[in-house]
């Protein structure tokens, strides 16, 4: 048994890393710059788990989060990776 992958937990929604093309498209649709997006720390457990399959994720990457929402069914959210520390 490997280490538990936090992305499998019920509470954790799906995380995807966007490539630069998709990033641009999303920002254009929302009409904002990257620094206005909600943030996620580089040391966040979900990012660390994502790095296992995706390789290094640098600060500045945009993460697409697909949440299950009780009102909207599925809702899509975006967070930008910052170099903050998730305190342990």
């Amino acid at each position: 048994m490997g280490k538990f992958n936090v992305l499998n937990h019920e509470l954790v929604p799906e995380h995807y890393v966007l490539d630069s093309k998709e990033e641009e498209k999303v920002l254009r649709e929302l009409g904002i710059t990257k620094d206005l997006l909600p943030k996620i720390n580089k040391s966040d457990p979900a990012i660390i788990a994502l790095e296992q399959s995706h390789g290094d994720i640098n600060p500045g990457s945009v993460i697409k989060i697909v949440r299950k929402s009780p009102t909207a069914g599925i809702s899509v959210y975006y967070r930008v990776v910052v170099s903050g520390e998730t305190v342990r």
């Binding site: 048994m1 280490k3 538990f4 936090v6 499998n8 937990h9 019920e10 509470l11 954790v12 929604p13 995380h15 996620i40 720390n41 966040d44 457990p45 979900a46 990012i47 989060i65 949440r67 967070r79 998730t86 305190v87 342990r88």
Partner: peptide, 30 residues
């Protein structure tokens, strides 16, 4: 991490900060 028989994907705690430390921001939002 230590107990094999449990289903880690459903296990839940009411300690919000613990969820943040182990599962991350998105989980803590939920």
């Amino acid at each position: 991490e230590k107990v094999e028989e449990i289903d880690a994907t459903r296990t839940y705690t009411n300690d919000i900060m613990e969820i943040y430390n182990v599962l991350g921001v998105e989980a803590v939002r939920n």
